[in-house]
Simulated assay, not measured.
Amino acid sequence: MRTLLNVIWVVLGGFWLALGYFVAGIIACIFIVTIPAGVASFRMARYVLLPFGRTVVKKPGAGAGSKIMNFLWFIIAGWWLALIHIGTALAQTITIVGIANAWVSLKMIPVTCFPFGKEIVSSGGVL
């Protein structure tokens, strides 16, 4: 079932969302100082490309560094990636099948805005 949901997700907008994260990651890696943000963006691109069967959990031991990076991330990239999620969700609601995907896209916004201090893990089973 996850595979089917992931295929529908990719067709109805997941590819474009993942591409946005990938571009953000490339831009962040251009500057040496922002490589951690680039790595986080690539991690999110992988999650956004195939979200079903994965979940986001808080990373134990994440401290002040995560909060500082989340603040910088939100200012530099988080807000516009969240806008892309909102736009994608609006476009997905055109079809009945897309309504469920729109809900998933909206549920990703908190981790989109503040990815540091979180970990993406498998929900169990084979992805």
Rank of each mutant, 00 (worst) to 15 (best):
P60K: 06
I76G: 03
V11F: 06
V7G: 03
K107P: 00
A100I: 15
W16F: 08
M1I: 12
I35R: 12
W103S: 04
Y21A: 14
P51H: 09
I30L: 10
S105D: 10
K118G: 01
V126N: 13
T95P: 06
A18F: 13
T88A: 13
S66E: 01
N70P: 02
Y21R: 12
F22V: 14
W79G: 09
V111Y: 12
L49M: 02
L90E: 14
I30V: 15
I99N: 12
R2W: 08
C29L: 12
L90Y: 15
P115Y: 11
S66M: 06
I86Y: 13
L5Y: 10
R43V: 15
C29W: 10
I30R: 06
L83P: 05
M1P: 13
G61E: 09
W80P: 04
V48A: 15
F114P: 05
K67I: 11
K67W: 11
R46F: 14
G53L: 09
G98D: 09
M1L: 01
I86R: 06
V39T: 10
L17D: 03
F71N: 03
A37H: 08
V10P: 00
G78S: 04
I96P: 00
G124Q: 05
F31H: 09
G65Y: 02
T95A: 07
G65E: 03
L17Y: 07
A64V: 10
A18L: 14
L81G: 14
A24Q: 05
C113D: 10
F114W: 12
A82P: 10
W9H: 15
Y21M: 05
S66Q: 10
